[in-house]
Design a protein around this nucleic acid. Sequence first.
RNA 1: CGGGGCGUGGCGCAGUCCGGUAGCGCACCUGCUUUGGGAGCAGGGGGUCCCCGGUUCGAAUCCGGGCGCCCCGACCA
Length: 485
Amino acid sequence: MGKNKQLTQRSEDFSTWYNELIFRAELADHSPVRGSMVIRPWGYGIWEHMQRALDDMFKETGHQNVYFPLLIPMSFIEKEKDHIEGFKPELVVVTHAGGKELEEPLVVRPTSETVVMSMMAKWVQSYRDLPMKLNQWVNVMRWELRTRLFLRTSEFLWQEGHTLHATTEEAEEHTKIMLGVYRNFMENWMAMPPVTGLKSESEKFAGAVRSYSCEAMMQDNKALQAGTSHFLGQNFSRQFDVTFQSEVGKEEFGWNTSWGVSTRLLGGLIMTHGDDQGLVLPPKIAPIQVVIVPVKDLEDGSVLGKAESMCSELIAQGIRTKVDSRDFVNPGSKFYEWERKGVPIRLEIGPRDLENNQVVLVQRVVPEGQPKKEVLSQLEALGTMSKKLDSLQGLLLDNAVKRREDNSYRKVKTITELKEIMDGPGGYVYTGWCGDPAVELAIKEQTGATLRCIPEEEFRSTKTPHKCIGRDQKSEMEVVWAKAY
RNA sequence: CGGGGCGUGGCGCAGUCCGGUAGCGCACCUGCUUUGGGAGCAGGGGGUCCCCGGUUCGAAUCCGGGCGCCCCGACCA
């Protein structure tokens, strides 16, 4: 026994590891429909915690939730030229309903800018109605050629924020505020620190003036675009006639933003923290933060009784705790199962512990060189649990930041060097760029790397590169290259 | 959509070359003994062999055509 119970190791085959982990941790499964997935309770539970945290942040930044319909008239999607060009290949279109062919085909939303704008046009008359800040938690469909669980499925869950502002400055600022919200969430809840920045023209959202993104580095050193925030300018408001009367009585077009994160974040979570044992969950988004495993109960049921009373005390402290009281599963099996599912802390309690008023505490991840198991008094376990969860949360973030920086390269000057890194370990490569899209294309063709973003100031190198990596030209900006999901 | 691999109880596979009435491990069910890192013994249940067609006395196996999944690319959150 044993061998086939283990996951494929990350070093052996990262993709296989990723897929196996999803099945073994019971996060998701393939649905009968090609490219779409069923999110199982454990996976959805994590998503719910992520949703809650994000939704709170959206409310704090003045947004209200709404619901727009799944179906959008084809003519709406076609209104904005770049928008339809970008989305056309991925559209799922409804042509029949009620046994008849529809007069106008309906698109299953790939994103909702168009229908939101069409309604905003009705709702907004005056500058006093602005800003209008809306968000919705919905499913969308994009018929992708190659799908991967969580990373790219034909249907996925996300939130899409849509705002309308009176001035370009305000809209642009809001785009950045939401990028910051995403970054904050990724760092402080998911412990997945992204590099943030501006997308190049060729990589921006179809229909946007400017797109900003969060680029998180996975354990295989590839980048995952984990969230985007777009400044749409008046591209959509002009097409949908979203106008308002300004303070001085002039009719003006509104300025829009839109931004979204999806269940792709779960893929990012797996590839940021997962190890060869399985998933690793940051405490803040773990459906269960502490699992208590009773080991060999006594005749009088006192071991289970103690486990349950400790559980109640932890729950009273606001810690999500569960006793695994299944009597038909061996303790060893339970240990492996909860590790596979990524539960941050496990408490083991048996007759021996009962006698000594102690408990065995096992952390899913510990700082290097520290033992995973420690024995401490029940009182101490209860008293320090909250602190331990916090420090584990911090440890995961520290580890991820370190990994990201350890795999970032800042003194690369030629495409040859870039290619060597891409063919070797991979990672983020910071270089100068003249701004010519032809350089982007050449680098993509030669190295497989794409321009992830023009990083925000704090990510830039202390020594600004002064030459473009691709041409004998002055560098106009520092950019980040990486292979991406 | 191109290249490669694969579809056989829930999962992982053998059997396919060379046609003869489907098997192994894990999981599952029952009972007893166990329980501090994936338990042991005994008994038991479960499969239109991806689908459709063809060849044949007979097809998981041979032939034709579909469909699906995975991996690597190009496209994308």
